[in-house]
Each structure stands twice: as C-alpha cells, then as structure tokens.
Design a protein around this nucleic acid. Structure first.
Lengths: 232, 232
DNA sequence: TCAAAAGTGTTCAAGATACACCCATGA
DNA sequence: TCATGGGTGTATCTTGAACACTTTTGA
C-alpha cells in the first residue's frame, strides 16, 4: 500500500477474517458444516470454516473462495451476517471477522470432499462448543435463517432442485420448529404460483410416491413484480 | 501485536473504518446527517461520518465513539448494517468499512454541535452524491429501516421522548412513503399497549392540542414476553 | 388386504381495511 | 364564528387456522 496517504498510514491495520456458517438440511434435520481447526491457537477444536482475507480480495470473494475450496460448490446462496470485532475475541491476536451464512443442498455435497477437509455435518441439536465467538455467530445465523425463510424463497436453497411437497413442508417445520397443517401449507405455497409441478414422482418416501416440484425464478419474479411477497 | 503467531503474521492486514448512517426525523421528513469530508482523498465532498477503528477498540465502540464525538449523544439506537470490502472502494488505499445505522431524535441534537463538525441534516429526497460507496450504504440503511420499523419499536428512537399520535403517524407515513388511516393507526398501536398516555397536550400543532404519549419499555417487554410482536 | 404416506375442501375466527362526523380551541 | 387539526366506532372483507377422509401402491 505504498500509495496510501499519510493520514491513512497513521492508523492501525488489522487482520480480517471471514467465517462461514454453512447450513444444510438432511434427514429431517438442520445441520451445520464444521471442522476441527488445523492451526494454533485452539488447534483440534471445533470451528466454523474460515480464513483470512487476502490482499487483493473483497470480503465476498473471500467467503466464496473459502466455500468453494471446501465444497467445490459454486453459485451458493450466501449472505453477510455481521462483523465481529471485539478486541480480545481471538486469543492469538486482533482479528476482525466477518461472518457469512450459506445455504447448501446437503445432498449435492459429496462426502468425499467432506472428508478431505475434515468437514462434518453436525446436527444443530447436538452442536458442540465451537471456538471463540463462533457459537454466537451460529445463533445469530439461525435467527436470521428463521426470519428470512418466512419472507424470502431461500428454503429452496437447502433442497435438491427437484423436491416434493412433504420434503418442503418438513424443511419449514424444522426451521420453524413447529408442525404445519399440510393442507394449509400446500394451499399457501401453491397460491403464490412460484413452483412448477413436474410429471414425475419421487417414490423413495412412500409407496404411492409424491409429485416433484421445482422452484421457478421467473414465476417468483412475476410475484414480486406484481407487488406481492413470498411468505410462508 | 508481538504476540501474534507466525501463521497469522503471514496474512495481510487492512485499515478498518466505521461509517455511520445517521437518520433523523424533522418537519415531516427523514433526514440524514452528513458532512463535507475534511481530508484527502475526496476532501470537501459529501460523506457519511466515519473514522478508522483504533487499536484497542471494538467495532461497536468505534461506531459509538464517532457518534458521540459528533453529537455528544450517548445511548443511541445503533445497529450494524453491513461490511463493505470491495478492493477498490477507496481510491487512496485498501479500507474495509463497517457501516452502522443510527436513529437519533433530531430535536435533541443541537445545531451548535452540528456546526462545529460541519454536520448537516440533509433530506433524503435531495440527498447529494456521497463519496465512494456511501450512497449504497444509505440505500441499504433505508431498506433496513423500513423493514425494522414495521416489526420493532424503533420509530420511537426518532421522536422526542414525549410525542403525539399525529407525530407518530406522520413518522410512519414518511418511513413507509404512504398514507395511513388515523383511526386504524391509533387502534393498532394502542391495542399493543406499549404507550403511556400523559395528562399533557402539545399545542404546537393545533389549537385543540394533541395528547402526549411516551413509549414504555416495560410494557413492550410484557408484549414480547406474552408471545406477541410489535407490528405497525 | 393392509399399512403408510400423499393428496384434497370447507367452515370459522380474527385481523385488516374502508369510511364520516363531532370536538376543542385561538384568532 | 369559523378554520384547523384532534379524536372516535362500525361494517365488511380478507386471511389464517382448524379439521377428516380418500387414494395409491408395494409388500
């Protein structure tokens, strides 16, 4: 930064990190992708996936890089959550961390990649103590997920591209931690007209089989342009 | 930072700044407190109030310090909005900025202090071009304000401690950019039972005078504890 | 043939919206 | 006395909530 002016240079600089709260949905449970930290301090303890921001890299780029390195997945739903800047949050030095949360379709994420990085899908019900303020980040991420899920079509990010109504409902029941009436649920979601009903059934869940649906961004756009909102 | 380990030291560090989006409400308008920047680059151009984070200072502390230095006001409603980390957002060097938005009761903020820092209340309708990505920050802050105002009792932060119904309604009409029916508005807000009606009238707005109210945190807590939400 | 999950409509209650007149006061 | 803004109640509509039976099919 030889080009920086004197005024800037009189001020301190900081390490800046990105931490990713990676949510997945599998077997009727919300899960978090975590791993055991591979460097000091706190090596070997459970941690979110994170890393330092590099010199010519934006925050968003750093978050996407970390996620891609880990999962090989691109075009992932990802949003900044909040920055964490307490002076002593990291015992090894002053680090300002920007937390992102990401939603990935757990099924499309191969376990092969998982193990390469020691990544583990951990159910949110039995989440261990994570390093530093990472548990705080997760709590905040969860709150955000719950709120967002009710007003934005982000639930679909957690499901495979083709999914059934019972799957979708189970997802929302998990996120909201409550049971929903299936007739009302179908009515509401179908009334928004953002899904495409396919001609196929998924027979893995029952003998009868359940019709597959796909979320349609164009229809969603129509809904929004028409002045209506997604709510569920 | 002599205590930092080698792994950390191999990574770059960054200037970190805080920028404050300071909203006020006066004369039926939402306003933003801005000033002309006093150092290079872009000296003399309109800017949000901001500053660099200091060595032993958390992000929140930095935001509060900047706001306090500027307004002399303490205990201000303030919330982190989002971080801005594009590589070239600041032409004079790499700076990562954390944007905060604050709501202050414009009336309690004396113009004396204003002028000392060259601060200016600028109506949002005639907001000039601000430096760097500050206009983006303001837009995002506004969207957040609109959403939050409908589900959290933050409108009161923009009014004096004692206010009238017509004032409160005018505030919400401004935030939502729409007109509201005064009977329905009163019904809704009074039904939540979070206000205390005072025995006094404010006669500045009409001959008849309007009763003054005060927002009551205890009543609000009762509402929330009872499982209900603030909505307007 | 039966167990297990998928699929389907109607009724009722609550909350949101629309709407018009009287009141108090100072000039 | 009148102009100005403050204050009040009811009827209707829309939306969310509650609720039970039939269908399909593989074992």
């Amino acid at each position: 930064m030889g080009s920086e002016n004197q005024f800037y240079r009189d001020h301190p600089t900081f390490h800046v990190a990105v931490d990713c709260i990676i949510f997945g949905f599998d077997q009727g449970e919300l899960k978090l992708l975590i791993h055991k930290r591979r460097f000091e301090p706190a090596m070997g303890q459970w941690s979110l996936f994170g890393g330092f921001v590099e010199r010519e890299e934006s925050l968003d780029a750093a978050a996407n890089r970390i996620l891609f390195e880990l999962t090989g997945l691109d075009n992932i739903y990802m949003e900044e959550l909040q920055s964490y800047g307490e002076v002593n949050r990291d015992p090894a030095g002053r680090v300002i961390s920007v937390a992102y949360y990401a939603l990935i379709p757990a099924k499309e994420y191969s376990d092969a990649t998982t193990n390469q990085y020691g990544a583990t899908w951990m159910s949110l019900d039995e989440l261990p103590r994570l390093i530093m303020d990472h548990n705080l980040m997760v709590e905040k991420g969860l709150r955000r997920l719950k709120r967002r899920a009710s007003t934005q079509p982000i639930g679909f990010e957690l499901l495979p591209r083709e999914f059934t109504m019972p799957q979708l409902q189970a997802l929302y029941e998990t996120i909201y931690q409550s049971t929903l009436d299936k007739r009302n649920f179908r009515k509401k979601i179908l009334s928004m007209d953002v899904l495409i009903k396919l001609d196929k059934k998924d027979k893995s869940g029952s003998r009868k089989g359940a019709f597959l649906y796909r979320f349609d961004r164009k229809k969603y756009k129509k809904l929004v342009d028409g002045g209506d909102n997604f709510t569920i």
